[in-house]
Each structure stands twice: as structure tokens, then as C-alpha cells.
Design a protein around this nucleic acid. Structure first.
Lengths: 405, 405
DNA sequence: CGCACTTTAGTACACAACGTAAGGAAGTGG
DNA sequence: CCACTTCCTTACGTTGTGTACTAAAGTGCG
């Protein structure tokens, strides 16, 4: 233990001011002084430095208010870039973003499927290097590479990855170290839910003072939590395992050993399993009934539901009802005022999940009398995790741990 | 908005060092330097000041390690005092504590029952003043009064209180303002669960880097959360409403409008209701079957269970099983490594709740492979909430918002 | 158009807090 | 007794912020 207090270093102050500029989009020096509590003189000094570093630019003048017009400041988007990779079973998504979280270049390739870890990582490394070249960014502006994985954090910083074929096949594999050896840039690895959360935070310009949660739906449900301008990681970086929240103590057995878990009641596999009970529907959808096609089968059901097919709408609504119950419990526990739904699982029928969750929270949430809990669909689209991974890098490199309130 | 950055003021550094001394019990200057990241020179300066203020004292010398023996530092317990009041339906508990959280004087009087808010607060004010005189503490060392209430935070800092008779009878009543007008000391009001958590933190010398949760059981279940050395309050200071976590989507209706809530399945009222179904048991216990005697009736059942009565043990175990499920969900969500059970509801049979929760977490928690989640009974006894309220005052006055990591 | 006023931005200097370096104090072990 | 270790303090330099003042750039009215 040896890092704690160290005075208000330039680093920290610069980070804090940069964070204000990020969440504001466009601000004046006076705004910054108001919001940071620093005096104009100090802001002047910090801003001068940020301008000199090229991190921010002056972009015009504010509206007249009876005196000298204020100079507008904002990110210099091309000052820094980041790469985000979302590694998932059916597909791998790469994005190159600028400093404001805008996607400059992207690429989708096949997922890891049943590949051995070493093979998959080798391919990812190659594709990554191609992409960086193709994006045509100045190498010195690349602050790092973020990787979003479905999995848990192991003891030694290892990232565990869940695959379809074998559970925890990647268990002993140190993704981060392997990538780090192959790529000469900072590598940050996080789970997909947390990445989605920080993606919303960064690209959505959410202020550091707002606490919110993001639910990410791919193979299963995960939750990412942002508090006080930083990711909340818990005691071993394994926050957000909501897939096995107990919603029905007498419910069906789950592979985890519990009963009535959210995952066994509402995840894509559960929805597909119910669809398969209905022979006519299974036939109509051409369900393949194989473990490995669950994600594709779920997508088919979701597409039909989005198109209005009553039976499919019913199936999705059933899933959404369970998620709504889980979100109700979570909201009561954490007093959230904003929940964002992201990930491929919500891409077709996210509005159904939003509607049912909103209804449930408005009806039963304990804090509903004080403030609403907004449930929203992510605006980042299907590459939310990849974009979030890139945002994570930007956040950790440009605005490391914000403090105070 | 105007408080955020302001350099590392003496205030903040002093707070941080004082917090390290609190959680260490006894430390040397060298230890403080290691743990804080400050240099020995800076520690020297800060410690000198804390000694001059009388907040800490030198209490001897450390073990020889081949050189000059280090001077031991610890709190000067009598330097400051705080008062904590736990306002509950069946009883009101007052404690006067010293700076280390030790109880110096205490008093229990009848609860608020069906009293009107103004009447109850008037009586509390009178009893409080008597107690302060009786404790014989130097008035200038009293840093403030903390109040633990069962209730929710309203919009304008109002505290809502749940009473047996009418739900939310106290709804529009501003407890804090009323007390503040009557008592010339800082007043801090919090809900009982949060107070219990900070009581463990302070009196139990838990380091600021440890995140943990406390479950408080009085009329119902509540949860208090400490993260990064401070209370986690959420967006409207209403964190911890776990009483209405959904554990059984098809379960019995709850007064809140939901189904299968933890409270309706496992709270004292539910346990008593089940006991009343059993005519023989109800007779044996002399259950009064009245709404207002639920707490007393539950205590009877708990006492018999603690004595080994099989039927009562079964009833408590049923309640504990539901709580264990809820704690499993919460642990998976927040990646906790420590959960403390506190409050009058656990005073007789807390070990049963601890045992079943530990079992469930060891069996099903997602992080069990990384680290255990310890479930422990509070060592603060039945006055945990009052002691916590006092701790809250000490914390907010002596070590305001810790930062960094 | 000129002049008084407002708002923004930057500079000079003082102050506060921490780090570095050096040395004194208090002990250990040969 | 003396070399060495560890603890603690003092003196001084660096860094970052606030205060006070000034310059710059606008508005609005007569």
C-alpha cells in the first residue's frame, strides 16, 4: 500500500477539468470555474496547458451577455484515439474512436466460437493491427486498446471468458497479458457490461456526479455500475452478476445450482426453449434447436416480435417482465435514477423491455415519490460494448479516478 | 454547484490521517507514512497538529526493531463525544459515546408508539438534555447528535418515519429541523440500516478501503452500504430498501403492491403470522395476534428458537432461508466480501441467519472461487443503531468524505 | 460615435501543503 | 564504546491555488 494522498497534483486537476469538458461538450472558462470550484485564474492556467497539449480547442465565442463574449472550449477530437474490441461468441467487433467517442473505423469478424484461447487471441491481434493501419490515425495519438469480454475477473488479473461450448474453457487464460505481449499499447480488459456502462458515460456525456447502471444483454444479463465518475468494481472486480438473482425461490433449476434465477427465466436460452415447446412456432422460425445457435434463434424471435407477431411478442414480454422485477429489486437496493439497456439482446425489442421496466418501476419502486427512475435504450447501437471498451481506455488514460464531490 | 476541487487542504489531509488512526487503533508515524503515501516529514507535521488539538495521544513505544523505538499513536477517546439516538416503535435508545465508539452512558425509554410527531420529538429533546447532563461530559467536546430512524428521505431533507399504527404518519414531518431548533448542536439524521453500517465501520475499526454491507432487522429488513470510507447514499439517499426485493414472482401479495417480497416472506410479521397458523404454538407463546405486538411476538418466537424449540427453530430458519437468497442476489450484484447482520431482530437467533446465509453464499455465490463472502453478526449488540448514529456524527465531523484510493 | 459599464481572460504575488535532504535522537549489537 | 539502524524533526525548495489587479473585448445609451 502506498498510493493515497499526494496533494492536488497538476495531473489530478487537469483530469478533473478535462472531465468537465467531456461531459459538457462545449463550455466556457467561467462555466468551468463555477463547476469546479476553482477560481478563474486557476482555470486559466489549466486550460492554457490543455490547449498547449492539444487536448482541447477553442471553437468560437459564446452568446453575448453584456460584456466580453466567452471563448468556447471543447475536446479536440483528433487529439487522441482509442481502440475497442468486443469479444463475443458469435462475433468480434472492433472500433476505432476519437476522443469524443465517435466511431472512426470499425470492423466485424467472426466470433471466437470454439477456438482455443491462443488461436483466437492470435487472430484478434492480427485483425487489430490491420484495423489500426486502415484507420489511418497517427500512432502517437492512440492511447490504448480496450477489450470487452463476457466473463469474470480471476485472481491475478486474469480474465475468464464464458464460451458456448465449454463453460470456463478460457478460465486459466490470461487474455490481458497475452495481448499486452503482442501489442505495444496499454491494454485494458473489462467485462462487457461494465464496458457498456462506461461507453454511455463517455459517449453520452454523462456528468461524473450522476450514478447510473447499464444492463447488458448478450448471452446473459450483466450489469455495469458507474458511481462518482468511475466504474464501481467491488472487492474483486466482479460487480454486476445479475444473471443469478433469485426471482422465484420455487422456480426451475438453473445450471448454477440455484432455482428461479433471472438467467434461467429470461435469458435468450430460456426464451428459445419456450419457443421450442411450441411446435408450430419452432417450425415457422426454423429453430435449429442446437445449443450453439441459441443467440441466432433468439434474434429470430426478437425480429418477429418487433414485426408484431403476437406469439413472439408474448415470449419477449415474458422475458421483459422478469427483467423488470430484477430491476425493481436493484433500484430499491441502490436508489438509481437512470438505467440504460444495451447490447445485442436489446437491439430488436429493446423498447418492450424499456416499457415493461418503466411500468414496473413507476408502479412499485420505493423512491418513485422522490424521483423517477428513467429506463432508456442505449443510443450506441449494437457495438455498445466495443465502443465502451474504447471509452474505458480514454477514461483511464485521460481522466483517471475522479475524486471529491 | 461550487465545491469540488480545492487543493489538498490541511482539513482533508488531517481527516485522512485521522481515519487511518481510527481504523488502526494503534499506529506509528512510519505506519501512517506507508499507508497514506505521504512522507515522514509530512506525517510529522500533521501528527503534531493532531496532538496539539488533543485529538490523538502518544501511548508508549513499539517493539524494538533494531533502532529507535517508534512512538505509538492512538485516539484520545475523551477528546470528543457524540450522542446517538435510535428512534423505534417499541423503544427509544440513547447512547453517549467517546471518540472510539465506546458507550459512556446510555438510556432506554419507551418508543414513539402512536405519538404525534411533535409530542414525540418534544419528549426526545427533554430526555436527551437530561442524558447529556448525566453523562458529565465537557459540553465543548460534544460534536453533535445523530438520530437513527426507520424511514425514507423526503425531498427537502425531511425524514419519513414508519410507525406501526399508520403507515407514513410522520410523512410530512421534518424531524431534523425540529430537533435542530431545540438542540444547539449539529444534528444528523439517517435511516437505521445506514447507521448500523457506519457503527460497524467506526466502532469495529473497519478500514476505509473495505466495502461492506450491513443488514439491519427491526420491523423489516434494511441494508446500509459503505464504500470507499463513506456511506453510499444513491441519488436520493434512499439506498438499501431490500424489504421489497422480489424473491418469488408468484408469491403472496405484499402491502407494497408487489408479490413475494422479502418482507412479506421473511420479516417478523410474516414469521408471527405463520406461528399464528399453528394454534398450539400460538397458545404456547401467548401470541396476542395484534398488529402492534408483532415485534414482541417475534421476540418470543426467537427466544424459544434460541432455546432449541424445534417448531420455532423451523420458523426462524424459514425466514433465514429467504434472507440468504436475498443476500446471494445482493452479493452477486455488488461483489461484497463482508456482510454484517445487526439490529434487534437478530439479537436472539442471529447465528441461525448467519449460518444459513454463509451456507448459501458458499454454495452459490459467483465470486466464491475468488474470495469468500463473510457473514458476521454485529458485535455492537441491541443498540447498534444508536451507536451507529453516534458514529455517523463522529465520522461526518472528524473525517469528512475520504477520497482517492 | 464616444463613454460608462460588464464580462472574460491573464498576470503578479502571497500562501499553503508536500517532498527532499540533512541531521539529531534514541535505540541495538558487537 | 562505537558503528549501525530506525524514528522523527527541521530547513528549504517546488508546486498549485487564491487574491488582487489589469488588460481585453464586448454592450448599450445618450
Amino acid at each position: 500500500m502506498a498510493k493515497m494522498l499526494r496533494g492536488a497534483t497538476a495531473q489530478e486537476t487537469h483530469s478533473a477539468i478535462l472531465d468537465l469538458i467531456r461531459s459538457s461538450g462545449t463550455v466556457t472558462r467561467v462555466d468551468l470555474a463555477d463547476r469546479s470550484g476553482l477560481t478563474g485564474a486557476s482555470i486559466s492556467r489549466v486550460v492554457k496547458r490543455l490547449l498547449a497539449d492539444g487536448l482541447i480547442i477553442e471553437t468560437g465565442y459564446g452568446d453575448p451577455t453584456g460584456g466580453k463574449r466567452a471563448t468556447l472550449l471543447q475536446f479536440n477530437p483528433r487529439a487522441r484515439h482509442a481502440v475497442g474490441i468486443a469479444v463475443d461468441t458469435p462475433s468480434t467487433t472492433y472500433v476505432v474512436t476519437d476522443m469524443s467517442g465517435r466511431v472512426i473505423e470499425q470492423l466485424s469478424s467472426r466470433g471466437i466460437g470454439k477456438d482455443a484461447p491462443a488461436t483466437a487471441v492470435r487472430r484478434i491481434t492480427a485483425e487489430l493491427e490491420d484495423l489500426i493501419v486502415k484507420a489511418g490515425i497517427e500512432p502517437s495519438t492512440l492511447v490504448g486498446v480496450g477489450v470487452a469480454l463476457a466473463g469474470r475477473q480471476g485472481r491475478g488479473g486474469t480474465r475468464l471468458l464464458r464460451t458456448d461450448s465449454e463453460k470456463y474453457a478460457w478460465e486459466p487464460f490470461a487474455v490481458r497479458d497475452t495481448l499486452k505481449a503482442a501489442i505495444d499499447h496499454p491494454i485494458v480488459v473489462e467485462n462487457d457490461s461494465t464496458c457498456a456502462a462506461i461507453g454511455e458515460f463517455w459517449a453520452g456525456k454523462i456528468p461524473s456526479v450522476n450514478d447510473f447502471a447499464t444492463v447488458y444483454l448478450a448471452a446473459g444479463f450483466g450489469l455495469g455500475l458507474m458511481t462518482n465518475g468511475d466504474v464501481y468494481r467491488g472487492s474483486s472486480s466482479n460487480v454486476g452478476e445479475i444473471g443469478h438473482m433469485v426471482l422465484d425461490v420455487n422456480g426451475p433449476m438453473c445450471w448454477c445450482g440455484g432455482q428461479g434465477c433471472l438467467e434461467s427465466l429470461a435469458a435468450p436460452a430460456a426464451v428459445v426453449a419456450r419457443a421450442e415447446q411450441d411446435a408450430a412456432l419452432a417450425d415457422k422460425l426454423g429453430l435449429r434447436g442446437r445449443q450453439t445457435s441459441v443467440r441466432a434463434d433468439f434474434a429470430k424471435i426478437a425480429r418477429l416480435a418487433a414485426g408484431g407477431d403476437p406469439r413472439c411478442v408474448q415470449l419477449i414480454e415474458e422475458s421483459a417482465t422478469y427483467l423488470a422485477k430484477a430491476l425493481l429489486s436493484i433500484t430499491n437496493l441502490l436508489d438509481l435514477d437512470q438505467i440504460i439497456l444495451a447490447g445485442p439482446g436489446f437491439s430488436e425489442t429493446g423498447d418492450i423491455y424499456v416499457r415493461l421496466a418503466t411500468q414496473e418501476l413507476n408502479r412499485l419502486s420505493f423512491v418513485r415519490a422522490m424521483h423517477p427512475t428513467r429506463v432508456e435504450l442505449s443510443k450506441l447501437g449494437p457495438s455498445a460494448a466495443a465502443l465502451g471498451a474504447a471509452s474505458l481506455v480514454l477514461h483511464s488514460q485521460l481522466t483517471p479516478h475522479q475524486n471529491r464531490s
